[in-house]
């Protein structure tokens, strides 16, 4: 393994950790709004780290560009989905959990 490989592996594993956090949050958190927080933020960071981990291995700059483009699209989709779902939940009168 080269130094790049170690860097790549570290980024990929860190990314997977955030995906795990997103899923655990989805299962553990008390209401739909807090679950959205967990899923949106953790999964997007997870994908971002994975994209970085794969980008350092990429063979061409256009491949790096494509990976980054995919991440940007997922970010945009993620922010829109979070907004749509939480707005829908609010309009349908789903109360938020309070401590």
């Amino acid at each position: 393994m080269t130094l790049i490989d170690y860097l790549s592996a570290a980024l990929l594993i860190a990314g997977a950790f955030f995906f795990l956090a997103g899923t655990v949050g989805l299962l553990r958190f008390p209401d739909v709004y807090t679950r959205l927080h967990a899923l949106t933020k953790a999964d997007n960071v997870g994908l971002g780290l994975m994209v970085m981990g794969l980008a350092v291995q990429a063979k061409s700059w256009s491949a790096v560009g494509k990976l980054v483009l995919i991440w940007i699209l997922v970010l945009l989709a993620g922010a829109s989905i979070a907004h749509l779902v939480s707005r829908g939940a609010l309009q349908r009168g789903i109360d938020l959990w309070r401590r």
Binding site: V32, L67, A77, I81, A89
Partner: peptide, 25 residues
């Protein structure tokens, strides 16, 4: 709630993309 079911869109969006990128590599 149905809102929780909608979270599938978010979950699948990011996770499926990550899996595909890993398989591509």
């Amino acid at each position: 709630t149905n809102a929780d079911r909608m979270l599938a869109a978010q979950l699948f969006g990011t996770t499926a993309v990550a899996i595909l990128l890993l398989l591509a590599q």
